[in-house]
Every structure is written in C-alpha cells, then in structure tokens.
Design a protein around this nucleic acid. Structure first.
Lengths: 147, 147
DNA sequence: ATAATTAAAGACAAAGTTATCTTTAATTAT
DNA sequence: ATAATTAAAGATAACTTTGTCTTTAATTAT
C-alpha cells in the first residue's frame, strides 16, 4: 500500500510517541533498531517530519534526539502521510485514470470509492497517540521482540 | 495502490474484453493508444497475461493480435493481479511488519483488516466481463475520449 | 517460396526508490 | 574555548520500475 519510506515513517513516529518525551529523547540509532529499518535512510525520512515540528521534533547535540509533543500526538495518522507526500494514494483511481470522476467513472469507481472512503476515515480519525497506547496496553505490537 | 504495470494490465484487459473477439483481434498499437500507455512497455506487460492463455490470448502474424476468450472474461479481476504478481498487496501489513498477525497485530491491524477484506472481495467477485459491460452500457469509461 | 505483418524476446536506457557514507552544523558538558 | 555528541545536509551507490529499441519467431497472403 505505502512505500518503504512511509512505512518507516509510520513505525518510527509510533515508536517515538510510545517511548519519548521532551526530556527523554531518542537517538536515530535506537529508533532504527527498534523499528528494524536502515539507520541513515530512516534519518533522511524523519527529516520530512521535523520541519516546523510538523509531526515530530528533533534537537541536535548531546542529550539531543527525537521526541514528539503532546500536541502532535493528537494528530491523525494522515498527518504523517501528508508529510510523506503519499496522501494522493487515497485520491487516485484504481485503474490509474487521471480523469476518473463521478461524471466519467472508471468501471471500478463506484465500489472502490466506498473502500477508499473507509481508508481515508481510518487515517483521519486514528491518532498517533491512540496507536502508541495500543502498544502500551499490550494489545498491539511494532515488532516480534518483547516490548 | 497498484504499480503502473498493473494499472496498464487492468486497463488493457478491460479494453480487450470490451472490443475483441477471436476473429477481431486487437493489435498492441491499438490497445496502447486506447488505454493511453507506452506501446512497448504494454507489450511486455501483456506477455505476463498470455502464457497458457492465463488471462488473455495472443497470436502472431497478419490478422493476429490480442483477444480474450469467453471463459477468461469470467475470471475475477484478481486473476490479473495474481498474474502481475501484485496479489500480496492485499496480504501486507500497512506498517510493513512481516510478523503482523492476529496473535501479534500491529496497531492498525484490527481496523485495516476489514478494509483489506473488502478490497479482496471486490477483486474476487468483480469479473473482467462485468467491467467491460459497464463500458458497453455507457455507465463507465476507460478514458476521456468518446467511446 | 517469398514478402508482409504481427507478437515475443532480449538488450538497453531513463527515472525513481531505497540505502550508505561523509561532512557540516547545532548543542551540551568539561 | 574545546571536545564530544547528536541530527542535518549532501553526495553517491544499488536496486527497482518504467520505458525504448532492435532482432527474432510465428503466421498469413501472394
């Protein structure tokens, strides 16, 4: 469904939301190890989420690292998708027609749109915090290792 | 959602189902033009659908070209996805975890699985023929041009 | 048989995605 | 101030996907 980059962004953000705070920042090494992603590539990806503290925050230097504000934890998952530039997946025609519309629908349009709508609403209503809490609860997991 | 290759495969197959018959085969040029795809690339893609007349059929030489049998028209859309090797999209974890399961679900798992199930059932129940008929009916379209 | 026409096969090129490595800049502690 | 630590920035490489072009093989018509 999503690119590797977006998958890493989602996992990293959830991990940061679950483990970090302003005075317990996480290094890119810890994050990448935890979510099983390549370190440098993950660093690059997180740079898409940090400008203006859009989704997560980063500070350089000793005691630096990544964290997320309480405010940003309240953001819907879609905020990550938007920052990753993958929001159009949810607008695109299944057949790849750029002119697919209600007026000129592709032959999958009428059924596919309902499913797409559910995806949009899932990503719009589910917050980063909720995902992190599911892991805290032990009702969900980010990997196979013990949390 | 799908790769360009799979989008072209879907569009091409629908076009062939709508316009071809055993004694009215379509050239790769006509198909590519109709579905607005690069000719040679489309030719390559259709080679994934022809072996053993899996989805469509092809014959070389004058009066040759592509067509689809009545039998293959009855195939679900998913047959195209399988031939294109894109069937795992519908199995994959949204977060890209390879160990995501009912026992160890990712934090999106429980909601995402229902949506995925609808996608699977859409691609499983919808046949190539049905899509072609929608175009015949004028209730659906493959492009912006007049049919 | 020969020529014409069509898809198949194969080599290659361009672009995009994923990944690595090195250098720079910011911050902290000494 | 200096050294240490951390993310940011930038260059580059590997791999995948998308796309093109040429040659070959099959089929038909003459």
């Amino acid at each position: 469904m999503f690119s590797k980059a977006t998958e890493y962004a989602l996992r990293a953000t959830i991990y940061i939301a679950q483990r970090s705070s302003v005075d317990n920042k996480l290094s890119i090494h810890e994050i990448a190890k935890a979510i099983d992603s390549p370190v440098s590539f993950t660093a690059k990806i997180l740079q898409l989420l940090t400008p203006g503290n859009k989704v997560i925050s980063a500070v350089r230097g000793p005691k630096g690292g990544f964290y997320i504000t309480e405010q940003c934890k309240k953001l819907p998952v879609r905020a990550i998708l938007i920052a990753m530039g993958e929001s159009e997946i949810l607008d695109k025609c299944v057949l790849g027609l750029n002119k697919c519309s209600e007026a000129k629908p592709c032959p999958m349009h009428s059924q596919y749109k309902h499913i797409k709508q559910q995806l949009i609403s899932l990503f719009e209503t589910k917050t980063i915090q909720q995902l992190a809490e599911d892991i805290d609860d032990g009702t969900a997991f980010l990997n196979v290792k013990k949390n």
